[in-house]
Design a binder for these strands. Sequence first.
DNA 1: CTAATGACGACAC
DNA 2: CGTGTCGCCATTA
Length: 109
Amino acid sequence: MDFYFGVYEVVAKIPFGRVTTYGAIARHLGVESGARMVGYALNNLVHNPGGEKVPAHRVVNRLGQLTGRGWFPGDSMRERLQQEGVEFTEDYTVNIEKHFWSPDGISDL
DNA sequence: CTAATGACGACAC
DNA sequence: CGTGTCGCCATTA
């Protein structure tokens, strides 16, 4: 379960108005090819305590697509990102290149 | 222990 | 350039 915890910590540290990708998180955790595991962890987020404190809506795939919008009620994922000033290239695709945030930036704290 | 799955990613066609 | 398939690795059945 340490993998999940690592995902939570990284996602929880995503700055306001920024987004990151599953692959980036996976690499930061040392599992370069474990992008799927990141999404899996986020999926289990709803089954974990305090999961609401983790802005999973800021996590998108490497294309910036809100692949996990189906796990959010309605369009809450898209609306939250828009409220944070995230620019959308498509209805369910964010400008990842513009708002991308690398987990390694945690060192910036 | 083996098989199947998954909020992904990269490569092949 | 769009679609399809395989690989990846942890978790679950």
